[in-house]
Amino acid sequence: MRESTKKAKEVLGRELKSRPLESLIDDMILKKITGNPSVLESEKYFEVPDKMVMFYKYSYGQQSRFFKELKDNAALYGARCRKCGIVYFPPRAQCSECYSDTEWTPVSNEGVVVSSTTVWYTTSEFFDRTPYAVGYVRPTDANTAMLQRIDLKGREFIEPGEKVIAVFKRERFGTVSDFWYEIKE
């Protein structure tokens, strides 16, 4: 046996640590089809089930501090350009206007709604939370606005210009949905 074939065989033996996640999804789909075979057309044209699935672990890169502060300290951080002074929220490590570096700066939990919408129909992943408002909120001491959920508190719509305050989830994972805004009464 060639050396390269031998090496390939060794890898073959130790590559799979557990069942591929795709096969779990295949099983679920197969169950659906067995329960209702007519879901797939086969007379006029020929339909088969399929999927494109990707899994990731990814890094926030130079934005990491925002998510660390959010998760560990329930604090909101923006980024101030060292040259032109713009306070970015969401933060970015470099200023897109003058190409200088930025520095971290805490921003206020209080902000103003720039504009919003109330979502009534969406993907399955978010459907159980409808209706919900998402809108751009500018913290009182930042120059830009960030998209965030705004608690409707029974209203149909959140008007631009409303004053809001950030509220943090008790259990935080380091994602943008770890906090939301509520109307400041």
């Binding site: 926030y60 919003s116 979502v119 969406t122 998402v134 998209l147 959920r149 994602t175 949905s177």
Partner: peptide, 17 residues
């Protein structure tokens, strides 16, 4: 990173405008 996890859609993106 910043917008998808909030449950946005093409419609919501233009509705804000």
């Amino acid at each position: 990173t910043w917008e998808f996890p909030l449950g946005v859609s093409a419609a919501s993106s233009y509705a804000v405008l």
